[in-house]
Structure formats: structure tokens, C-alpha cells
Design a protein around this nucleic acid. Structure first.
Lengths: 253, 253
DNA sequence: GAGTGGTCTAGACCACGCC
DNA sequence: GCGTGGTCTAGACCACTCA
């Protein structure tokens, strides 16, 4: 029952009560929550208030709704741990190790190359690649899939001088991997900086990765450098946070 | 104007339109958005629908509301880049380098030690520390501040055998740093594994870190190991994602 | 006091799942 | 056909800001 003497909003009181019943174990992952009419009766609020309470739980990623069936406690998703060791520039490209990391966890990794074209790069990319103002870059956009579901967007940016005329600038698979090709072209990557951030997805990302309500994305901004710190590639990865986890191993010195 | 022939919900059409006007530059960060009555008139929807549209933009972290004043495009927040090099086990503890990283960006870092006690650790922590079932651990809970604002929660878990009777188990500052103390106690850290995830904050975290609507948190799970891979400490960091960015540098081999 | 955001309600309609 | 979630509306009240 909602207390009228509590100054907190009713929908929040109801949300808190339900959240507690979930975390307390009364409702396990996969269980159906009380229907709106039940909440209405049980807590003495209007339907729309009950709906708002449920909506805040959805925004927290705790609950998901299915029209005509009910609201359910969200299942724990399988989590793929991506090891950052894959950036080691020596042997593998991102793609090879992406597939390997997925296979390790019993999942099938695949990718599509959606586009390869010249664009005006975002300013952070231009900065990272040390491109003069207004200069274009080659972008190569890929989507990564796990068991056929799109889970990651990967955009690679190259200075035009590096990618132009090579397979990097065409929307087709690169047989031995982009890493190997870069090395052959004289841009062997020897060092990476990786910046990790989290935020709510854009509408485009929600669409492309079928991200559920209340699930953030992890954004990785990676700058790859050849000898003497010369930046040769800049990648932006966007991963849905409920399916990924990053692993960084920092060995002792 | 909302189209009745578009099957997408009206609140979403309005949200999209406003989002576009924001990203298109019509409303710059800090600008006030149209009031609900203006939206009502302009798009031909009910007030509550306008409110719902604005609420979805808030959930995306794009907009923030101030009762009695208006809704505003959220300002870009200063972002603190935390370099993961700080885990290098040789010289510094987390605290020293936290303060240094903040100072580098012109901010004042501080911390409070909120609690040091024995608890039943979360199962991931028990696993990471290889504790037998049901065994307690010493937890040391800290809050980190930037310019006086709480921005990060840091919980360190130790096996009881390591921490009991030492300063680690007391809620007081450790003069030369926890790292140094660990080393003196014969548990010099030589290796770390770090797992990075993102999710929406819990109610407690919203409260403790005054996290705004629509802002996720970054959670770092760090396992520190002494010689021969023996785990000696397990830390959980929770950072509000709008103020932090992690940096990992991966040197070539 | 006028305008603003924040909340709440009652009542309505739709689409979907299931029997 | 009934119960479910999802959406929309009109109208109400409160707290806050600002002139």
C-alpha cells in the first residue's frame, strides 16, 4: 500500500516495492510480475501509475514486457568476455580473434562489412589520426554477430593516403585480415591506446543492435599506432552492455 | 505535427523530432527546450504525451529538467580519463594515483573510508579470491570525490587471513597506501585482471553518486594477484559514466 | 501570480497471446 | 472473448522559479 504521508512519488514507492520483491528472490529471473490490475488493487494506485512504476524498472534493465502476456523479470543474458589481449598487433586481426573469442564460449561469431567509403571523420577521429582540418578519411563499417544476432558495431577509420586503392577501401572481406594487410603496406601496428566509455544508445544503435529498454552501450575508441607513434587506424566499437564484458590483463613488471 | 498514419507512437515521433532539433544544432547544450504547452500546440498532442516524449529524452541522457524553470539540453560534462596504468603494482596505491590523475586534469581528488568490516562476499568475489563456501571476507568501502562531489564507489575485498588485525580491516587511512602495506605483509601484487562492464545504476548508487536520469555506470571488477597467481585482493569500482572514461594503453611487443 | 515541470487519476482504445 | 501490455487524452493538483 502506498503511503500518502511519504513524500516520495507513488510510482517510485511501487517501483521500490517491486524491485525489493525481485532482488529479495520472490520473483526469480524469468518469472512473471503481477499484472497492472493486480498492482492497482494491491497498492491502491491507478493503472497508469502502476505502468509508470513498471516503466522505471524497465529503464533500469530489470524488467521486460511482452504485450498480451505480461511483464517479466529479465533473464541474465549470456555474457561474452572480450579479452583486450586481442589487440596484440603481432598475429591476429580483430575479426579472427572475435570469432575465436565467441567460439571459446560456444557461440558462433560472424561479421558483415556494411560500407567502405570516404567521409569527413568525427573530430575525435581526425584528432587521433592527426588529420588536417577538413581532410577526409576512409571509413569501413562492420557489424559483428553472435549466433546471427547483431551485437556490435565496428567502424574503422584510416587516413586516405593509407587506405586508398587498397582492399581496406572496398566493402569486401580481406582474406588474411586487415592487420596483416596493414603490415604489408608498411604500417605495422605496434601500440594501441584504448578509451572505454559507457552511455545510452542512440536511436540508430537501438535499431541496429536491437537493444532493449534500459540497456546502455559500451563504446571503445581505439587508436592504433605504427612505429614512432604514428597513428594509422582509429576504431570505434559500440557494444550492447548486457551481452559484453571486457577483460584487460595487466601483467606485473 | 504528429502523423496519425505513422504507426509509431506519438510520444516517440515527438521525441524523435526534438532529438533531431537538438542534434541538428537548433538547441545547443544548455539551451532551454520548448515548454510542454508549446510542444502541445506545436505537435498537436496532449500534455502528458509531450511529457512522455521529454521523459524518453531524459532516459537517453540528452535532456535534464528543472521544476519551475524548464527542460534543458544537458551540458557536456568534464570527463576524467583514468589511466589503467595506475594498477602497476610497483609504486603507487590506487588512492595516490587517483589523486594524481585528478590533479593532472585540474581537479581535486579526495576519498572517504566509509566502512571496514567482515561480510559474506558476493559470489563472484568469493570465486575470484578462491574462498571456500560460506567463508567471510574483509571489505573496505571507500567513496572517491572530485572537487568534493562523490563520483566513484570502491569496495576492496580481502581474505580474512590477509587483512585481519591489520590496518586494512580498520576504517582509517593507511599512511603509505594499501599497496605498500600489502607488500610488507608478504602479498606483493604482481598481476591484475580487470573486467569492465556497464549497466544502469541501482537505487543506492543513484543516491550515493547523485547520478542523473539516463546515465549508466561503469563497473570495474579487478582481481589482484601475488606471485604464482595467488589472488590477494578483489576490488569493485562503480563510476558514473558521464564523468569517467577509462584509458588502457597496450604497448607493442 | 503566472508559467513551468512533476505527478496522479479515470477512462478510453489498440494489438497481442491464449483458450 | 478475455486478460494482458502499450498508448493516448483531459483534467487536476503540487512545488518550484521568477518577475
Amino acid at each position: 500500500m502506498v503511503s500518502r504521508y511519504d513524500r516520495r512519488p507513488a510510482f517510485e514507492q511501487v517501483a521500490d516495492a517491486l524491485r525489493e520483491r525481485i532482488t529479495g528472490g520472490e520473483f526469480a529471473p524469468g518469472d512473471q510480475l503481477p499484472s497492472y490490475s493486480q498492482i492497482e488493487a494491491e497498492y491502491g494506485v491507478a493503472v497508469t501509475t502502476a505502468q509508470r512504476a513498471i516503466r522505471t524498472l524497465k529503464a533500469e534493465g530489470l524488467v521486460e514486457g511482452h504485450a498480451g502476456k505480461g511483464n517479466y523479470v529479465r533473464q541474465e543474458r549470456k555474457i561474452v568476455t572480450l579479452s583486450a589481449s586481442f589487440v596484440k598487433p603481432d598475429v591476429n586481426g580483430t575479426w579472427t580473434t572475435w570469432r575465436a573469442a565467441a567460439a571459446e564460449q560456444g557461440l558462433k561469431g560472424s561479421q558483415s562489412i556494411d560500407e567502405a567509403t570516404q567521409v569527413a571523420p568525427p573530430s575525435e577521429v581526425a584528432d587521433a589520426l592527426r588529420l588536417p582540418d577538413g581532410e577526409l578519411a576512409v571509413v569501413r563499417r562492420r557489424t559483428m554477430y553472435l549466433n546471427g544476432e547483431p551485437v556490435q558495431l565496428a567502424d574503422s577509420y584510416f587516413p586516405v593516403g593509407i587506405a586508398e586503392g587498397t582492399a581496406l577501401a572496398r566493402a569486401e572481406r580481406i582474406p588474411r585480415g586487415a592487420s596483416a594487410l596493414m603490415a604489408e603496406l608498411g604500417h605495422r601496428v605496434v601500440e594501441c591506446d584504448e578509451f572505454v566509455a559507457a552511455r545510452m544508445p542512440t536511436a540508430r544503435e537501438v535499431q541496429a543492435l536491437s537493444i532493449k529498454e534500459g540497456v546502455p552501450v559500451i563504446e571503445i575508441f581505439r587508436v592504433s599506432k605504427a612505429a614512432e607513434g604514428r597513428p594509422v587506424e582509429c576504431e570505434i566499437f559500440v557494444l550492447s552492455a548486457d551481452r559484453h564484458r571486457l577483460k584487460y590483463s595487466l601483467p606485473g613488471c
